Simulated assay, not measured.
Amino acid sequence: MLNSKKTKKVTQIDPDNIPSHVAIIMDGNGRWAKKRYLPRIAGHKQGMETVKTITKTASHMGIKVLTLYAFSTENWKRPKDEVSYIMSLPGAFFDKFVPELIENNVSVRVMGMTEQLPKQTLAAVNKAVEQTSHCTGMILNFALNYGARMEITNAVKEIALAAANHEIDPVDIDENMIADHLMTAFLGDLADPDLLIRTSGEERISNFLLWQIAYSEFIFSETLWPDFDADTFEKLVIEYQGRHRRFGGLEKESKK
Rank of each mutant, 00 (worst) to 15 (best):
Met1Asn: 12
Asn3Ile: 03
Asn3Ala: 05
Thr7Pro: 00
Pro15Trp: 04
Asp16His: 15
Asn17His: 15
Ile18Glu: 11
Ile18Leu: 07
Ser20Pro: 07
Val22Met: 04
Val22Gln: 07
Ala23Arg: 12
Met26Ile: 08
Asp27Trp: 03
Gly28His: 06
Arg31Ala: 05
Ala33Ser: 13
Lys35Thr: 09
Lys35Asp: 13
Tyr37Phe: 14
Arg40Pro: 00
Arg40Gln: 09
Gln46Ala: 15
Gly47Trp: 03
Ile54Phe: 05
Thr57Leu: 12
Thr57Asp: 05
His60Glu: 15
Ile63Gln: 10
Val65Gly: 00
Leu66Thr: 02
Ala70Glu: 04
Phe71Ser: 07
Thr73Met: 06
Glu74Cys: 00
Glu74Val: 00
Leu89Thr: 10
Leu89Tyr: 08
Leu89Pro: 12
Phe94Trp: 11
Phe94His: 06
Lys96Arg: 10
Phe97Asn: 06
Phe97Trp: 03
Val98Cys: 02
Ile102Ala: 14
Ile102Cys: 10
Val108Lys: 02
Val110Trp: 06
Met111Arg: 05
Leu117Ile: 06
Leu117Ser: 08
Leu117Phe: 03
Lys119Ser: 06
Thr121Phe: 00
Leu122Ser: 11
Leu122Trp: 05
Ala124Tyr: 01
Val125His: 06
Lys127Ala: 09
Val129Met: 10
His134Thr: 15
His134Trp: 02
Ile139Thr: 15
Ala143Gly: 10
Asn145Ser: 13
Ile159Gln: 07
Ile159Glu: 12
Ala160Glu: 07
Ala160Asp: 10
Leu161Trp: 09
Ala163Tyr: 07
Ala163Trp: 01
His166Glu: 11
Pro170Lys: 09
Ile173Tyr: 09
Glu175Gly: 14
Met177Pro: 01
Asp180Cys: 11
His181Asp: 09
Leu182Pro: 04
Met183Lys: 03
Leu187Ala: 05
Asp192Pro: 01
Asp192Tyr: 15
Pro193Val: 09
Arg204Gly: 07
Arg204Asp: 01
Phe208His: 11
Leu210Val: 11
Leu210Pro: 01
Ala214Leu: 02
Ser216Ala: 08
Glu217Gly: 02
Glu217Arg: 09
Ser221Trp: 02
Thr223His: 03
Ala230Asp: 07
Asp231Arg: 15
Asp231Glu: 12
Lys235Trp: 01
Lys235Cys: 00
Lys235Tyr: 00
Arg243Thr: 02
Arg246Asn: 06
Gly248Asp: 06
Glu253Met: 12
Lys256Tyr: 09
